[in-house]
């Protein structure tokens, strides 16, 4: 039942952020932020409790996996919000977390018989790092959307609702860049942890599993984006579009592969 308390906090935070978007009173943004912090704390406690209770990292069904996804997005958002003060981003992050959690709550939370593979430290590192990376990419996508909205307003010279409420292109661009940089570092680290784990369990680093292939594609895409930024200065609009495309591929890697293709990651998203 703790998940409902968490969801209520996240939903209230969403309301706070939307009130901020429309009414432009800072107090709403602060309320939204603290509600999200409260939700995140409850969420952390719930996951920790689950971990101790079951004795393994709680990612053995779709319900738990989505819960961890929501948890990492909330956590990563709080860190970025603290670092960049991009207040309006909560309008994207809070509902995103809420939706993920509502979907999570829809799936039954029946424990599966797991062969003790979830006790391995490398696996926990692999899952947490990859999820933090993907949460960062999710935020990069949100920032990218905001960038496109703002750029469109400036280019088309129609200064409507969003123009007044969104921050400067420069801030959006640097925040997006920081999200992608963090996401890329965490994804790389998580993939390495996955390889080490695969070697330990299956005796090989790489087994041409669909999930592995698509993760590789995602990694290459973001590597290319960062490379282009550092060499020829891909920034602004193009970087924003790439961040959105990248996140679409991540969504496919995360969900599509598990449901449409077969592979050894499948059991984590069993109903």
């Amino acid at each position: 039942m703790e998940i409902f308390i968490v969801i209520i906090f996240y939903l209230l935070s969403t309301i706070g952020y939307f009130a901020y978007l429309f009414l432009q009173k800072d107090v709403f943004q602060q309320t939204g932020f603290y509600l999200l912090v409260a939700g995140f704390c409850c969420h952390t406690a719930a996951i920790g409790f689950r971990f101790i209770q079951s004795g393994h990292f709680p990612v053995n069904n779709l319900h738990e996996v989505l819960s961890i996804v929501g948890w990492t997005i909330a956590g990563v958002f709080l860190v970025f919000q603290y670092r960049f003060q991009l207040k309006v981003l909560g309008v994207y992050a809070a509902p995103l977390v809420s939706i993920v959690m509502v979907i999570a709550a829809k799936f039954p939370n029946a424990p599966h018989q797991m062969n003790n593979i979830l006790n391995n430290l490398w696996l926990v590192v692999h899952v947490v790092a990859v999820f933090i990376g993907e949460a960062s990419f999710a935020l990069a996508c949100g920032v990218g959307l905001l960038y496109l909205l703002q750029e469109h307003a400036i280019k088309s010279k129609k200064h409507g609702f969003f123009f007044r409420r969104l921050p400067s292109l420069e801030l959006l661009d640097t925040t997006g860049y920081a999200c992608i940089l963090t996401g890329f570092a965490m994804l790389t680290f998580g993939l390495i942890a996955g390889f080490v784990y695969a070697k330990a369990v299956w005796g090989r680093f790489w087994s041409w599993d669909p999930k592995e292939i698509w993760s590789g594609i995602t990694w290459l895409l973001y590597a290319a984006l960062l490379h282009q930024r550092l060499t020829v200065g891909w920034r602004g609009r193009r970087a924003a579009i790439m961040a959105i495309i990248g996140f679409a591929i991540i969504l496919f890697t995360f969900l599509g592969v598990n449901f449409l293709l077969q592979g050894h990651h499948g059991e984590f998203t069993k109903l």
Partner: peptide
């Protein structure tokens, strides 16, 4: 003011 929306500072 417009410049500030582009450059921030």
């Amino acid at each position: 003011e417009l410049g500030r929306k582009i450059f921030g500072t």
